[in-house]
């Protein structure tokens, strides 16, 4: 339903986004991951209509920016990291104003307003002046303004940044509710949040889309070949043996305790059985073998820093 094709954006000669393509389906929550400067905000701003792409297209239900940018903006709701709010207005009046700006009639706004206040959990604050609200409630008003016109795509840039743990739990519920009948695209630095909220991940590095898929798919791709191996034997000898083994790409000592050492081993493929049998045949004692369990962090580091290491 939302298709991003070969999106490229230059700032002068600097390519902030290079040839990115991905899709977001109705009901899906897609997480955009990447380090600072990876191109996340540029992507979101292009999708929101704040920036024009240097090349490439964005289409929603077949409508693209080039042919009908205004109609496309009607179908998108956008919440930047700092919610854009008229702090002198009351919550309900602000949402009425934004609803009209987004193209709803006065009666459509009045019909939609109670639903939006309920989704954003703002019923009790509807008549409060926005300037007097806490940061968490301002974020919710920001979400409410992004969905008042019932858009097909909601874009949330760092929606939980600055929220306390209770507010994060509430915001998570709000975001899940948003995905009913529409698509949600969000960026976040908080990986556990992405893990809990998103159905699909898109990873950017240096402006390039380097991977996309479900968390399980990406973790399998990147992390299945990373194991934590605990071995009895002289650590330096074992390290040297592992380093020379054909199935091992890299091996580093994580901790040692006497003659027992734990290694983080990156395999050239999923070749665990062969490594273990060779290890035992060599006479070392195998004390433990486990997949690296900090999966999403490993995924994030693996995908976003691989080029820097190379």
């Amino acid at each position: 339903m939302i298709e991003v094709r070969n999106l490229t954006r230059y700032y002068g000669d600097f390519p902030a986004l290079k040839d990115a393509s991905f899709r977001v389906e109705e009901g899906q929550i897609v997480g955009l991951l990447g380090l600072n400067g990876a191109g996340k905000s540029t992507t979101l701003k292009i999708l929101a209509g704040l920036l024009m792409p240097s090349s490439g297209t964005v289409t929603i239900d077949g409508i693209d920016f080039e042919h009908d940018a205004l109609e496309l903006r009607r179908r998108i709701g956008y919440l930047p990291e700092d919610p854009p709010l008229y702090v002198d207005m009351r919550v309900a009046d602000f949402l009425r104003h934004i609803g009209r700006m987004k193209g709803l009639t006065a009666s459509e706004v009045e019909t939609r307003l109670p639903q939006v206040l309920r989704i954003a959990q703002l019923e009790a604050r509807a008549h409060q002046v926005i300037g007097t609200l806490s940061h968490g409630f301002r974020k919710r008003v920001g979400i409410a303004q992004a969905i008042i016109h019932d858009p097909r795509l909601v874009i949330l840039d760092e929606p939980i940044s600055g929220l306390d743990p209770v507010q994060i739990v509430e915001m998570r519920k709000v975001i899940r509710n948003l995905a009913r009948g529409r698509a949600v695209l969000l960026s976040s630095h908080i990986l556990s949040e992405v893990e809990q909220t998103c159905d699909w991940l898109v990873v950017l590095r240096d402006g390039e889309l380097v991977a996309q898929g479900t968390e399980a798919e990406l973790v399998h791709e990147v992390v299945a070949s990373r194991v934590r191996l605990t071995v009895r034997g002289a650590p330096s000898e074992v390290a040297a043996w592992l380093g020379a083994h054909a199935a091992v790409q890299t091996a580093s000592v994580e901790r040692t305790e006497g003659d027992i050492a734990t290694f983080l081993v990156e395999l050239t493929g999923d070749d665990r059985e062969r490594l273990v049998s060779d290890l035992i045949a060599k006479g070392y004692g195998l004390r433990g073998l486990e997949a690296a369990d900090d999966a999403l962090e490993e995924l994030f580091v693996g995908l976003t820093t691989r080029r820097a290491e190379a």
């Binding site: 929101a48 209509g49 704040l50 109609e71 903006r73 854009p84």
Partner: peptide
């Protein structure tokens, strides 16, 4: 300055 220009720029107003 306040970031509310985003509301105008993302609305279907020219």
């Amino acid at each position: 300055q306040l970031g509310t220009d985003v509301l105008l720029q993302t609305s279907p107003a020219t």
